[in-house]
Structure formats: structure tokens, C-alpha cells
Amino acid sequence: DLSHLLAMFLLLVKIWRSKSCAGISGKSQILFALVFTTRYLDLFSNFISIYNTVMKVVFLLCAYVTVYMIYWKFRKTFDNENDTFRLEFLLVPVIGLSFLVNYSYTPTEVLWTFSIYLESVAILPQLFMISKTGEAETITTHYLFFLGLYRALYLANWIWRYQTENFYDQISVVSGVVQTIFYCDFFYLYVTK
């Protein structure tokens, strides 16, 4: 979670200090805001811990502030021409799958499932943008590294929880593996370059 938090802070600090969101995919950031919104609908109904509640609020705030920076405050620096990933290619399959494969057919549960599936592919517009322009600022690569590391660390956490609590969540685990795989090529480049 701290790796995830660090990633989001890095991105915000980068945008704020440079007063620019060049090289950042607004579409990926909108998807992340949508991920947190649909996942944290239980913010007021399902209390886990103070840590859990505080982190949810911080994640939501970070996501929305980032979107605000890109599409409002620093919109003149937004590289709209290169942020061309077609969101419907992600949203249509993800919506379909969240209705087909979920734990229970209730609105909040389907939306939670949607958020898990969507998160696994939400970075693709950003990765597409980088491959299209062929460049990324150093700070952007740090952002991506910690964002990918967070899900890779969750894989270890899930193995630990299965061993110690016999707890496992197939939807999270399969999506988490898929999500981590999308970062592998990037991890390789990050470490070698």
C-alpha cells in the first residue's frame, strides 16, 4: 500500500513542481479514479480499520486531484494528441466480465469486481502513450515502477495470507497476476536502463 501511495504522490509532486502533465495519460488517471470510486463504495458501510478508511480517502483524493490537474489546472500542458487509447476496448470487456464472473450478483459486488478487473488494465493507456511517443521522463518511470511494484508485492501478500489464514480471493489474485504481467516489460526496461 505504501508503494501504491508513493507512486501516486510521485505523480502529483511531478505535476505540481513542473506545472506540467506532459507525458501523462489522462485516460489512465480517469480509469484509476473510476477504480477507486467503484471499489470504495463501502467506505461508510463496511468498517475494516482506521488505517483502511484513511487510506481509502487518501487514494480517492489523490486520484481525483490528479485528474483535476490534468484536465483542468494544467490542461494546456496535457498531451491530448498522444493519449489516444480507445477506452471502450477496455471498458466493454471489463463491464461484461464483471457481470459474468463475480462473487455475488449485487450492485456493490459487481462494482467491486469491475474495479478489480479495471485496475488490472487501467495502466494500458499510459503504457500505450509511452510506446507511441517513445519517451518518458525519469520521474514518470519511477511512478510506473512503484505502481507496478505495489501489485507485485500484493502477490507475495496473497501467498502469505493463504499460508497463514487460508484466505484467498480468486478474482483479486488472477487480476493481480494479469496486472503484474503488464508491468514486466516495463520493469525490465526500468532496471536495465
Partner: peptide, 10 residues
């Protein structure tokens, strides 16, 4: 475990 309720991960 009932996985349909109480997701405790972020």
C-alpha cells in the same frame, strides 16, 4: 470463507 462481503484489502 464468505468472499462476497467485507473486502478488507485496498
Amino acid at each position: 470463507a464468505d468472499l462476497s462481503t467485507g473486502h478488507d484489502e485496498l
